[in-house]
């Protein structure tokens, strides 16, 4: 089997289209995962059991079932109750909610890592609950978990091929569709692999930069 450079080159525009779709799903999903994950983490610490227990159940339920099943459910079952999201929205929400359950655990680790003395100091200064969280605890909790959060951006990006079940035309669906026409799987998979690698490195880079910045600040 020879490597056909023209086949690889010809497929590149379509693969890049697929990459853009995958990146969109990742970006939207990641923002959702960051925000929703923090909400999950905070709600699981509340003293109100009627809030804490159901949220805990939902998080554990989502965290312990496969993403593929969740995507399938969002796409094929929700329309039955009148909720019909576009394929890309389904993908972004599916990824975002799934990864929010992971990031909520990361946030929890960060919050638990804030020394008890900080809480006590805030209390003795009679700071309100809101101020304690936003000015004392979270500014110390979040920077130390930035690397772990960054990992999930890359993991999420690499989970985008699963979106093919909800008809999102991401990179691997393009490979299958084009490959079925020209049978140049070697070239297509190679180019797709290079694209994934480049994009993943590109995602890792700002996370690194952010991490360096926070390290300087906290030092």
């Amino acid at each position: 089997m020879t490597f056909d450079w023209t086949a690889a080159w010809d497929a590149l525009p379509q693969l890049l289209d697929g990459l853009v779709v995958a990146l969109w799903a990742t970006v939207l999903g990641y923002v959702l995962a960051l925000v929703l994950g923090l909400a999950f983490a905070l709600l699981r610490r509340t003293e109100r059991a009627w809030l804490r227990l159901p949220v805990g159940f939902v998080v554990e339920f989502i965290r312990s079932t496969p993403l593929l099943v969740q995507l399938f459910f969002l796409f094929f079952v929700l329309p039955a109750v009148g909720i019909e999201l576009s394929p890309l929205a389904t993908g972004a929400i599916g990824l975002g909610v799934h990864y929010a359950t992971y990031t909520s655990e990361v946030y929890r680790a960060g919050i638990d890592g804030v020394p008890a003395g900080q809480w006590e100091a805030a209390k003795s200064l009679s700071l309100s609950r809101g101020r304690t969280w936003t000015r004392v605890v979270l500014p110390q909790a979040v920077p130390r978990v930035v690397p772990a959060l960054g990992n999930y951006a890359i993991a999420m990006f690499k989970d985008t091929p699963q979106l093919t079940v909800v008809t999102v035309a991401e990179v691997l669906s393009v490979v299958k569709a084009v490959g079925a026409q020209n049978f140049r799987y070697l070239e297509l998979i190679t180019v797709a692999g290079v694209l994934y690698l480049a994009a993943a490195l590109l995602i890792a880079w700002p996370v690194r930069a952010l991490e360096r910045r926070y390290r300087k600040e906290t030092a």
Binding site: F75, P79, T164, V165, T167
Partner: peptide
Amino acid sequence: TLTFSTQAGGIDGVLAGR
């Protein structure tokens, strides 16, 4: 045009109104 990855998915898609 929706591209389903499997035949079963396509049929479920029609049933679900996708």
